[in-house]
Write a protein that binds this DNA or RNA. Structure first.
Lengths: 93, 93
DNA sequence: CGACATTACGTATCTCGTAACTATG
DNA sequence: CATAGTTACGAGATACGTAATGTCG
């Protein structure tokens, strides 16, 4: 599992379509589709239901989405905190 | 930044040596050293002070360590939650 | 057949490990 | 000169994009 896969998952969950999420991420559909499949494979469970209209979150996907957002937010916070501390600002982690 | 880099950082922070952390991660020194350098490059600030005895955390590194542990714990929680939900257990995220 | 996702496949990029190098007490 | 980290470099693994292939209403 990589941060890239997690970002891809969040984009697909929010857009409901692989194609639309791909445009948002400046990526083509196939790699993005592979990110999701690889994530599902690694977790051992499907996260989306495939419909002719696109991708709909399954309960496992909803659960993962909550954590995924927290992970990405934490990464962001880490970056900002380190830059702040390195610049001499007090640590607000 | 990747989860691998973050795991590498935590191992080096905890061991205080690249070489020892590399053994713990079943990796050789050079890739591990590169993970740290690449992290520092991406964050725009050094995280460790290099001493003849090994690596000592700088304040920016201490700040990053807190977040890094939180990120890895959150990833772990995500995996367990998804597996639980997929197995029909209620979501305790 | 239209609107999607997925698979095939070749190329570019990344990442590893071995070996060589650098630095410091 | 011993002990640490870093840089060079070639080989194997990854990940991209284009094109082809499902799949389902």
């Amino acid at each position: 599992m990589s941060l890239t896969h997690i970002q891809s998952f969040v984009a697909v969950a929010e857009e409901g379509h692989v194609g639309r999420a791909a445009r948002r991420l400046h990526l083509s559909q196939p790699p993005l589709s592979r990110h999701i499949l690889s994530l599902e494979d690694e977790l051992g469970a499907p996260l989306f239901e495939r419909t002719p209209r696109g991708m709909r979150l399954l309960p496992a996907g909803e659960a993962f989405l909550t954590h995924a957002r927290r992970i990405l937010a934490e990464v962001d916070a880490a970056v900002h905190t380190v830059r702040g501390v390195a610049a001499g600002r007090p640590d607000d982690s």
